[in-house]
Design a protein around this nucleic acid. Sequence first.
DNA 1: ATAATTTACGAAAACGATTGCGGTTTAGGT
DNA 2: ACCTAAACCGCAATCGTTTTCGTAAATTAT
Lengths: 336, 336
Amino acid sequence: MKPANLKTLALELNLSISTVSKALRDSYEISQETKKKVTDLAKELNYQPNPFASGLRKKSSKTIAVIIPEIANNFFTLAMDGIQVIAQEMGYHVLTYLTQETLSNEIASINHLRSGRVDGVLMSICSETSNNSHLEMLNDIGIPVVFFDRVCENLPFPKVTTDDYESAFKATQHLIDANCKRIAFFGGSRHLSIMNKRRNGYLNALEKNNIEADPNLMLDFNDNNEENLQIIGSLLSGKNPPDGIFSAIEKLAINTYEICYQLDINIPNEVKIISFSNLRTASFLGPPLTTITQPAFEIGHEAAAILFRLIEKKQMNDIPDKVVLKSTLIARKSTL
Amino acid sequence: MKPANLKTLALELNLSISTVSKALRDSYEISQETKKKVTDLAKELNYQPNPFASGLRKKSSKTIAVIIPEIANNFFTLAMDGIQVIAQEMGYHVLTYLTQETLSNEIASINHLRSGRVDGVLMSICSETSNNSHLEMLNDIGIPVVFFDRVCENLPFPKVTTDDYESAFKATQHLIDANCKRIAFFGGSRHLSIMNKRRNGYLNALEKNNIEADPNLMLDFNDNNEENLQIIGSLLSGKNPPDGIFSAIEKLAINTYEICYQLDINIPNEVKIISFSNLRTASFLGPPLTTITQPAFEIGHEAAAILFRLIEKKQMNDIPDKVVLKSTLIARKSTL
DNA sequence: ATAATTTACGAAAACGATTGCGGTTTAGGT
DNA sequence: ACCTAAACCGCAATCGTTTTCGTAAATTAT
C-alpha cells in the first residue's frame, strides 16, 4: 500500500497541493476550516511527509550524525543514550557511524555527510586521528559540529568534555595517599588530547609529591587486546613491578584484572588499581574497582543540546566554546 | 562552500546533466573517455550525490532503521555492533530508535518509517508490546523487516534468536546439578516470547527432576530498578529464601549481587546464581558469575545480513524463516 | 457606491538525481 | 555513394514538498 502524499490529500479534498501543504504547516494563509479538514484527513490516512522531498526542498533533514570510535564501550553507550534521549525529544533522527578507531573509516563517514544528509554532527575522534585535514572539511561544509570527550583542540567547534586533567591528578594523588610508591600510567594514543591531559595530571601529581616519573611505568596501549594483555603481563611479572596503576582506559583495567587473576596477584595488597570507567559492575568486581566515573550520559546529552541550539540558530549568543562536566572519584577496595 | 552537484560537473565539462549522471553510474551509453573525465572531476570536487534527490527519485535510501528498547544494555550494544559492521560494509546508513521499553515510543518510531525513510527495519520489541497492530502496519507498508532476540512470533517476518528454551533448561539443570533445591526464576514481561520460553525451560527442567515449582520463587520484574531491588531484597531476606537463582535478565543478576553484598549473603554458599548475560566482566565479579551468554554480535550481524538480502532481493529463495544461534553456558564460581 | 485591503487559495517554479526516449554522429557493409 | 546500425549524448519528465507570487472573492474603509 502506497503511503499517502500531498497529492492524495489534495485530490480527496478538492484542494490544491499547495493549500494542503500550507494547511499542514499551519500557515496563516489558510482558513481554520480548511486546516481542520486537511489535518483530519491527514490523520485518518496516516500521512507522513516524504523526508526526501522536504529534505531536498528545505535542505534540512531533521537528522544528526553521531560519529564515534566504537559502540561496545560503556562510555560511548551511555553518551549515545544521552544523545538519543534529547534527539527523540526534539524530533530528530540519529545516524550512527562507527570508526572502529580507524582513520579511513572516520574519513569515509565524514565524506558521507558532505551531501547534506544531516543537519549536524556529534563526534568523538578516533585514536588514529593525528592530522585533521578531514575534520577541517567539516568546517568547509559549514555544517554544525560539536565534539565530545575525544575532542580536536584546534578546531573552532564547541567541545564537551570532562575534567580530564584534574581527575587524573586526583586519581594519582589517591594512589599516592594509599601509600603507592611506584605508580604506573596506562594510557592510549598520544594523538588524543584527553590522553595527554590525563597523562599530565598523572605527571604533575607525581611531581607535586616529589616522586620521580619512571618512563618504564608509563605505557601507551593500542587497540590490540592480545598485545595489551602481554604488555601488562610482563610488566606485572617483571622485576620492579608497580604497586599502583592508574588506568586512563576502562578496558585496560579489566585487562589488568584478568592478568592479576592469571598471575595470582592480589589486588589491592600487591597492586592497587584506579581507572577511568563507566562500568556498572565496578562495585561488584573482585575486588570492587576504584573508578573515575565520567558523566557519560550528561556529556552526550549536553553535546547534543548544544548541537541543536546551533542547528536551530537559537540562543546563538550563549553557545559555549567549551563545557567541562566533572567526573567523580569513587573509592573502592581496589585501592584500599 | 556548497557541495558539488551534477550541474556543477556538467557545466565544467560541457556535458549535459544526464550524461554526467549516466557516466557516474557506469552506463553503457557513455564512452569510456567521457566516463573517465567525469569520474576524475567528481573525485577532484569530492562529489557526493545528494541523498534526498536520489532517494526521492529512486525510492530507496540505502538506510536501515534499528528499533531497540535500550542501548545501555550489553546485549543490544553488541548486537548493534554486529549490525553496524555489516551495514558499513554494504554501504548502508543506520538510523537508531530507542523505545525505552515504552509502547508509545515504539509506535512513534514505526510511524516515522511509513514515509520511505528507510529501506528496511531491524527490530527488537519492547516489553510493553502485547498487541501488535502497530507491527502489522509494518507489514502493510511492505517494508522488509527482520526481528531479532525479542521477536513477535505471529508476524510473517524472519526472526533471529538464540535457543532460549534450551539454554534456560540447561541453566536450571546446572543449578540442580549444583545441588540447589529451591531455585528461583527472575524474569521480565510476560508479553515477551523469549521470557516465556526461558520460563518454560526453567519449569520443564524442574519437572524433569521432579521438583515442584514454587510460585513464590517465580518473579516477574519490570523496568523499575528501585522496586526490583526491594523485591529481591525481601525474597532473599525473607523466610524460605531460594538457594539458587536463574536470572533471565542480566540487570537482575547485578541487582542480586548488590543485595547480597548489602545483606552479606554469600554467593555461592548461601545462594547460587546463573544469568543470561553479555557482561564482559563476568569473570572478574566477586564471585565470577556463571552466565548463559548469547552470541549478541552474531545475532545482530545475521539479522542484518538477512535484511540486506531481503532489501536487495537477492537469494530470495533461501531466506530463512527463523535462525537460532546457540548461547553458551559458562560455569563460574557463582554456581560452584 | 467605490476604493483599498484583507483573506484564502491556486499555479508554477524550484530542489538534484534518474531515466526513457529521441536525436546525432560515426563506422561498417554493400 | 548510400544505407544501416551501433555508439554516444541531450531533452524533458519525474519523484513529493516547499514557497513565491498572483489573483479572485470577501471585507473594510472612504
